[in-house]
Amino acid sequence: MDTVSQIFDKWAKNGRDELMEKEHWKNVIKFLKTVSFDKPFSFLDVGCGNGWVVRKISESNHCKKAIGIDKSKNMILQANTKKKNKTEKYINTDIESLNDKVKFDFVFSMESLYYVDSIDVALKKIYKLLKPGGKFFCGTDFYSDNKATIKWSNMMKVQMHLLSKKEWVEKFKNTGFEVKTKHIKDLKNKKKWKREFGTLFITGEKAERQSSN
């Protein structure tokens, strides 16, 4: 088991998974409200933790299936205990190992993509997993423009890829995505960085028609 899985296994046992849910809930829900879920769709959450985003998404009348994956076995156990309906499914795996034969309309990731061995490899896999016209939403508080959070990697004592907003955009573009960014801020939060920088969301859209080149 790698160090990241070990850390999140411990967090799932000591209740920190619920703290993460509470920390991110406001900005994530605010972002998701800007997304149109007005027709039948499938949804994948990469690094789903205890499944809180999957549970929220699965409440949509148009949600056909919502799958959450996480490297932490204990996080998946927690997600299954909180399961609310039949459209939810949780799998103990990482993005690199996930079968890419099943395609999704939307892929989501909050505070997890920077833990992977290679962001480029992970992005290519996510691109494969998306249907033409599908979208990948990547949320992070850990980016170099936000000076208050760059100490997190030393605190966590694990590999965390620290990129700037510009570098994130470049990696998405190099993968083939059309890219948009949005900062979701919590203007009433006590923490200055949450008011001034907030969560960076990078949206990558896969073209409707793929080039034959």
Rank of each mutant, 00 (worst) to 15 (best):
I29F: 11
V121A: 14
L44D: 07
K192I: 03
S97L: 10
K86N: 10
K10E: 15
A207G: 03
D100T: 05
V46P: 06
L130M: 05
F41I: 02
R195Y: 05
S118M: 08
I69T: 06
W193Y: 15
P132R: 10
I57T: 08
V35N: 09
S42Y: 07
Q159S: 12
D100Q: 09
F197V: 00
E96W: 00
D2M: 03
K125R: 14
I184D: 07
G15N: 11
C138V: 09
S58K: 07
S164L: 02
D105N: 15
I119V: 13
E88N: 08
K194D: 02
F142I: 04
E23P: 00
A66M: 06
A207Q: 13
K125D: 15
H183L: 07
K165R: 14
H62C: 05
F31W: 10
L162A: 08
I184F: 12
G68F: 05
Y127M: 00
K128L: 06
E59Q: 14
K165N: 07
D145G: 09
N146R: 01
G51R: 05
N174R: 10
W25T: 07
L187M: 08
M110S: 11
L187H: 09
H183C: 05
F104D: 10
D186L: 02
G47D: 12
F41H: 12
T203A: 11
T140S: 10
S60H: 13
F108N: 04
V35F: 14
Q6F: 02
V54G: 09
K89P: 01
K71V: 14
M75S: 13
S112D: 06
K124M: 09
K30W: 00
K10N: 13
W193S: 04
G139F: 02
R209N: 12
V102A: 05
D38C: 10
G49F: 15
N99P: 00
T140W: 01
A66P: 05
C63I: 05
I126N: 03
L123R: 03
C48D: 10
V158W: 11
F197E: 01
H161M: 08
L19S: 09
N27C: 13
D17A: 15
T3R: 12
T149Y: 13
L123H: 12
K190L: 10
R209V: 10
G204W: 06
N92R: 01
E18T: 04
D45W: 04
Q210R: 14
T3E: 15
M110V: 08
D38T: 14
K165Y: 02
S109P: 08
V53G: 06
W25Y: 13
W11Y: 14
V28W: 02
Y143Q: 06
C48K: 04
T3H: 07
K157Y: 04
K131E: 14
W25G: 04
M160T: 02
T81A: 13
N80F: 06
